[in-house]
Amino acid sequence: MSRLRPFINTAAIVGVLLVLWIVLNVVLGEQTMPGPAATFERALAIVRDADFGKHLAATGAAFVVALGLSCVVGLVLGTAMGTSSVIREALEPLVFGLLAIPKVAFYPVILLLFGLGTSAKVTFGFLHGLPVLALVVAGVIKNIRPVYMRVARSINLSRSATYRRVVLPYALPEIVSGLQLAFAITLQGVIIGELFASKEGLGFLLMQAIGAADARTAIALTLLIALAVTLANALMRRFHARAAGFAPSR
């Protein structure tokens, strides 16, 4: 019984949320706040629609590219900052600045440079994921315990061998955690980017529904997006738990 406890608690919380939803539906009316049943029905209709797959793919593709770019550039930049104190001194404050500033401020600039479309979305996601990954990688490499480096020197490991056999294995768990964070943040960036000015994708569908004042579609889409994001992140955690052989802490 006690092992089922967490699931029961979670189910109870979901139940409470559903009840709240129904209450809001009754209080605010079907126009303003569509109820759960109608929303699920619309959600199913949306998913079954022929075009939905195209939009889902558009969001997904933009995300994959953005994440890939974040990873490559982030790993390179982070490694450079972690190993060379000169580079770190020069660049770290700037990367921190990028992290602190709301990326939304740059969105019009990106639109001006790339125009409406996928490139803008990808750039937006990239800007979200890059500083996170770079700083995580830089941090873990910089903070490697000196004794590990001394051990490597004491057995005359070459520089590249030290990186391959000491630094990377040591850094891997934390880099994996950073990747998870970057995954979530890049996905957020891509979807937010789609809200602003896009011709396809899940975010675009949402703004389309808003423009038509279609509350039922809007809420259905919002929940679908939330679901998609949650599933993607859950899959990511599973995958990395297996790949890295341990359970992520966040």
């Binding site: 979670t10 919380i13 605010l28 957020q188 979807i191 509350a215 809007a218 939330a226 949650t230 992140n233």
Partner: peptide, 25 residues
């Protein structure tokens, strides 16, 4: 403990996507 999966979900979803809905309401 029961709320933890919800927190994780909450962090993942860009809450801004609820804003357009909120303006409708």
């Amino acid at each position: 403990r029961a709320l933890e999966p919800f927190f994780a979900t909450y962090y993942a979803v860009p809450v801004v996507i609820f804003y357009p809905l909120l303006t409708l309401m």
